[in-house]
């Protein structure tokens, strides 16, 4: 009697459908055979089957395209390090495998790259480029640097400051005189450091959020770079171009100015073919013009912020003293 119930249950079980439970996979059938397989193969990417190795210039071009348009961070970083080693290993006076005119437009967007290793590698590569060529492309380089300085991510802001330092070392005259170079860069400095540009009421002191948290460590550095920038733009450089009077060429005066110019795009300041530039986008070639714009728009907030920073003392205080010295030197002989 006890066993017949068991036997009936077993017979009934054959015809019952197993209940499906939520979250659990369906029960395997009795005659289930596993048909999966693991293919044991080596997959090789596209290969070029020539006997000669590709020439170094074509390899250079290949790694350049990898660096500028690869999806993976490590690949970009490795491509940049290959380019850096190529440039640093060739003799100094050799021409570049590819001219700077082609290298810079492809690599400048990497200033805004998300990964830190790519940015540091990019800066090492940029320092190997010849200074004269970089000066020709100052406007383009500044565009990306400014975008980096006002980026949302703090690390990109810090690295963009390093790029601006390099630009000031290499081509400071071009940086402050290119169209939009003076006013727009100063505006991005103001927004980066939180010093209000608009002359609002001084009741609301703009919170010194710059000295809190992680970004607080970069505030003195920002002020130092700002002082370097202002020095390049406002302080007279010692090496003024001396006019060599060629007395032997009596009927001719200023012959050098009538020869074919040696600067790239020597008539850019005429702006013959571009749309009209407003005050922000204008080229300020003279030191007096730069002083005038600085005094009109930026001097007040810069001085206020500098005073606040000096009161805070410490690193920020020391940087503020350097900034003050540059301001005094630069605007001393300006009488607006």
């Amino acid at each position: 009697m006890g066993s017949s119930a068991r036997k009936k249950k077993e017979k009934r079980k054959d015809f019952k459908k197993p209940k499906l439970k939520v979250g659990k996979t369906k029960a395997k059938a009795d005659n289930f055979t596993d048909t999966s397989f693991k293919a044991k193969s080596i997959v090789v990417n596209q290969q070029s089957l020539t006997t000669a190795a590709p020439s170094s210039s074509s390899q250079f071009a290949h790694y350049l395209s990898l660096a500028s348009s690869s999806k993976s961070d490590t690949q970009r970083r490795d491509a940049l390090s290959y380019l850096t080693t190529q440039l640093s290993s060739q003799p100094v006076n050799d021409p570049l495998p590819l001219p700077t005119a082609i290298l810079l437009p492809k690599l400048l967007p990497l200033i805004l790259d998300g990964s830190a290793s790519v940015r540091t590698q990019l800066l090492k590569f940029l320092r190997l480029l010849p200074p004269a060529d970089v000066g020709d492309r100052a406007e383009q380089a500044l565009l990306y640097t400014r975008a980096g300085m006002t980026h949302l991510a703090a690390e990109i802001r810090v690295d963009a400051l390093a790029v601006l330092e390099w630009l000031l070392e290499v081509a400071k005259e071009d940086i402050v005189t290119c169209p939009g170079g003076w006013v727009k860069t100063l505006k991005s400095f103001m927004s980066m450091m939180g010093w209000a540009v608009t002359s609002g009421s001084s009741k609301w002191t703009s919170a010194s959020k710059a000295s809190f948290g992680k970004a607080g460590k970069s505030f003195p550095r920002q002020m130092l770079v700002l002082s370097q920038f202002l020095k390049a733009g406002l302080v007279e450089s010692e090496a003024e171009a001396s006019v060599t009077a060629n007395a032997g060429l009596y009927p001719l005066v200023d012959v050098e100015r009538h020869m074919i110019p040696t600067r790239s795009n020597a008539f850019a300041h005429l702006n013959l073919f571009g749309s009209s530039r407003d005050e922000e986008g204008e080229m300020y070639i003279d030191r007096e013009d730069r002083q005038m714009v600085f005094q009109k728009r930026f001097q007040a907030p810069v001085e206020v912020g500098m005073e606040n920073a000096r009161k805070e003392a410490g690193e920020a205080g020391r940087a503020a003293v350097v900034l003050k010295k540059v301001l005094v030197d630069g605007m001393a002989d300006y009488n607006g």
């Binding site: 001219p99 005119a101 082609i102 004269a132 060529d133 020709d136 074919i260 110019p261 040696t262 600067r263 790239s264 795009n265 020597a266």
Partner: peptide, 10 residues
């Protein structure tokens, strides 16, 4: 070409 720099431009 850029005649000022005596080089290829783009």
């Amino acid at each position: 070409w850029d005649t000022g720099r005596r080089a290829f431009s783009l």
